[in-house]
């Protein structure tokens, strides 16, 4: 067996001490070791975006990231997006409002990408949203509704910031 290693991760503001096979990806650490299965495994090869999380506030594919790489760096998953008292993020409510998902399996990755996409300033037009959300596959084909949800959430977040 490959060597195990003691890791201390900061996930959704909580410190998690883990003893992991050093080959463990951040995705598998989340799903199999800290019981946060909201982050999804769709391909395990960085091709579908279902595993998107934020590391240092930027979108990252957790299947292409070893857990050991994020030691000391804050990780936010879909479970950490809402406020402590359970209020959903504007992107989450926009996804419900626009029915921007069906099976829901790509949804956490879509939402984490969308939050980052808005933060990056890549929601200037529908075409820009389409382009910058194209790393996240949705086999249910909810794309038109995802664009509408991201557009709406982006403008409501801008309004809130004014």
């Amino acid at each position: 067996m490959s060597a195990a290693r003691q890791l201390s991760l900061e996930i959704n503001g909580t410190r998690r001490d883990l003893n992991l096979d050093i080959r463990t990806t951040l995705l598998d650490a989340l799903r199999e070791h800290v019981d946060l299965p909201g982050t999804k495994k769709g391909c395990d090869h960085g091709q579908c975006g279902a595993c998107t999380v934020h590391v240092d506030g930027e979108r990252v594919l957790s299947c292409l990231t070893l857990a050991a790489q994020v030691e000391g760096r804050p990780v936010t998953t879909i479970e950490g997006l809402q406020t402590a008292d359970g209020v959903l993020h504007a992107v989450q409510t926009a996804f419900i409002e626009h029915d921007a998902f069906q099976c829901g399996y790509c949804t956490p990755g879509q939402i984490m990408s969308a939050v980052a996409c808005i933060r990056e300033g890549h929601t200037g037009s529908d075409d820009q949203i389409r382009e910058y959300m194209s790393g996240n596959l949705c086999r249910c084909g909810a794309y038109p509704h995802i664009v509408a949800a991201v557009r709406d959430a982006s403008s409501s977040l801008k309004e809130a910031a004014l």
């Binding site: 909201g38 879909i78 959903l88 409510t93 996804f95 409002e97 029915d99 829901g104 949804t107 956490p108």
Partner: peptide, 15 residues
């Protein structure tokens, strides 16, 4: 709106 929507967008729908 989708009944299970709040669970799915929060990552709390366990597959």
């Amino acid at each position: 709106s989708r009944a299970e929507g709040p669970l799915k967008v929060a990552g709390k729908a366990r597959y």
